[in-house]
Design a protein around this nucleic acid. Structure first.
Length: 558
DNA sequence: GCCGTTTTCGGCCCGACTGTTTTCAGTCG
């Protein structure tokens, strides 16, 4: 539980150092350390105990001292000093689109703007465009972005929220007085944006549990709402709601706190009073509750889609795809472009997951910022893949994530024809007109060598809207050209969304679930992609990376 | 702030493109 708070404070230090205008390498050092600590498999407290912090490359004496201080006290002097100089609320301004360090400094020093609220006021009054370098267009753009950020305040994407929730679950599980705990609510339903972490616990000492929670550095405040509910605030902004219940009612509580409000209302309509009165016995699991009320089991992912209740009544629910059905991951990067691990390291990790196959799809030459591969470097990469295929117990496919440029793909057809798998995607011109961006995507879909359209809409969860696309037209073209639509499993993308998956599925599209991993750890994001597929009513056969390796090869050779 | 030494300092370093503004800050994977 310590890693998250260390990472958070280092992020804050990094941002305040940027605003202060500190040495860039110092900033990079904090940024890197924050990432290292966040991705660490074990708790930093363990490393401190064994005096091994500085064994991590990137953590020196100075950072190690700060880490120790944070683990002991929840903060560190370096951060406190910076926070005295610059209000930490300034960091939120850096997220505003069109605003960087220099504008934050300008806003703060010239008109005292120190948070999103005051920036909104000044932009609304027109005071912003009076400053040098800011015109009415920038002011308007800032205002729009600030409104969006304010509406997203204290919300996290599914990946961050679930990461925190799982850590909390593990931590609370260790309390002696706690018998059972489960993550429920939006995280269990696999909502893409989470505004509250919901947990159900069975504890025989409510007060003691609250006291233990208060000790956690990531938690800023714990309060008791009533006999059954604990509310807590976190330093990540998101709130936590903990439902306390007795042992005999644990699964009922899990059941009722998983569905959305509207969903539970509709469910109650079909559960008559007589049955409801009887749902007080002890159940072994949720399956038993569904059996008791006379419905087939409805997966948590569908418990905000009212249609699933009607379909359940008619015994017409899908046989939803499961994580264990996934046989391989076909979109990941290596050090050849902007990934952080070698092909061998990625392959070993995929092997450990029990995958039969994987594909390395590094970026192509136009994406210079991501060290995209020229055809010559691509061919050199093939030699490495050939060698690994001889020794490893997993099939590595040769692929590329080819950039969809203005009027062509980033590799010629003769190169594309030699690849096992071709993924096409847009990484430029996000603001193209509908006509232009659709023309580019249509061109890619029509290319016979392209198997997959990756992150088809370009949206970022809590970050950026989709390109200006005509989604149904895109789907129809994908079906016509036998191109697979990607469900990008990165919780920052979840692109397609579950609503789009449901629609495209109805239209007849086929899908693939890929992680787009740039690091070994991101291969774990597959569960979030599968969540989108389940929310989108998909079954195993709708998703091509559930095929066995020989079936997949046959499919790709088409 | 970290690292690696020709061991106590010097090197580390995305960069082309966009858009609004009038010279440069912000953006992208």
């Amino acid at each position: 539980m310590n890693n998250l708070i260390v990472s958070l404070i280092f992020d804050n230090i990094m941002n305040l150092l940027k605003i202060k205008g500190a040495n860039n390498y110092k900033i990079i050092a904090y940024e890197k350390a924050s990432r290292l600590i966040r991705d660490l498999e074990i708790d930093v407290a363990e490393l401190i105990k064994e005096d091994r912090l500085t064994e991590i490359s990137g953590i020196g004496e100075g950072l190690a001292e700060n880490i120790k201080e944070i683990v002991e006290t929840g903060t560190c002097q370096d951060y406190n000093d910076l926070a005295k100089e610059y209000p930490p609320t300034l960091i939120s301004l850096l997220k505003v689109s069109g605003v960087g360090v220099s504008k934050v400094k300008q806003f703060y020093s010239e008109i005292g703007i120190k948070d999103l609220e005051s920036l909104k006021e000044e932009a609304q009054s027109g005071a912003l465009s009076q400053l040098s370098g800011i015109g009415p267009k920038t002011e308007q753009k800032i205002l729009e972005s600030v409104d969006k950020l304010l509406s997203e305040k204290n919300k996290l994407d599914l990946g961050e929220a679930a990461g925190l929730a799982y850590q909390l679950k593990d931590y609370i599980k260790g309390f002696k007085e706690v018998d059972s705990i489960e993550v429920v609510g939006g995280i269990r339903r696999r909502e893409e944006i989470i505004d509250e972490i919901d947990l159900v616990i069975v504890t025989n000492d409510f007060e003691k549990t609250i006291k233990s929670l208060e000790k956690l550095p990531i938690i800023s405040d714990v309060a008791r709402l009533d006999d059954e509910i604990i509310l807590a605030d976190t330093k990540l902004g998101i709130g936590i709601k903990i439902f306390e219940t007795g042992n005999s009612l644990f699964w009922q509580k899990v059941f009722w706190s998983t569905g959305s409000k509207e969903y539970n209302q509709k469910l109650k309509e079909i559960i008559n009073d007589e049955i409801e009165d009887k749902i007080i016995g002890t159940f072994e699991d949720e399956q038993e509750i569904f059996k008791f009320i006379g419905l087939p089991y409805i997966i948590p992912e569908l418990r905000d889609d009212l249609e699933s209740i009607d379909r359940a009544k008619n015994h017409n629910l899908p046989s939803s795809i499961e994580l264990k059905n996934i046989k391989g991951d076909l979109h990941m990067h290596s050090r050849w472009s902007d990934g952080r691990y070698t092909i061998e390291e990625m392959a070993q990790a995929c092997q450990q997951k029990g995958y039969e196959y994987m594909a390395i799809c590094d970026h192509t030459q136009a994406l210079t910022v991501a060290n995209g591969l020229t055809p010559d470097r691509l061919k050199a990469q093939w030699e490495e893949i050939d060698k690994l295929n001889e020794t490893l117990d997993i099939t590595i496919l040769k692929g590329a994530e080819v950039d969809i440029l203005e009027d062509r793909l980033d590799y010629d057809d003769d190169i594309l024809a030699q690849l096992d798998i071709v993924i096409a995607s847009v990484h430029s011109g996000f603001n193209n007109s509908r006509e232009k961006i659709m023309g580019r995507i249509m061109m890619a879909l029509e290319n016979p060598h392209v198997h997959i359209l990756a992150h088809p809409t370009g949206r970022l969860v809590l970050g950026r809207g989709a390109y200006n696309i005509d989604f149904e037209r895109l789907v129809h073209k994908a079906i016509e050209t036998n191109t697979i639509l990607e469900i990008n499993a990165s919780p920052k993308r979840l692109d397609l969304s579950h609503q789009q998956v449901k629609l495209a599925h109805q239209l007849g599209a086929k899908f693939i679930i890929n992680t787009d991993a740039h690091k070994v750890k991101q291969l774990n994001n597959m569960e979030f992609g599968v969540g989108v597929a389940r929310k989108g009513w998909l079954e195993k056969d709708d998703v091509i990376n559930t095929l066995r390796v020989d079936e997949l090869k046959e499919f790709l050779a088409r």
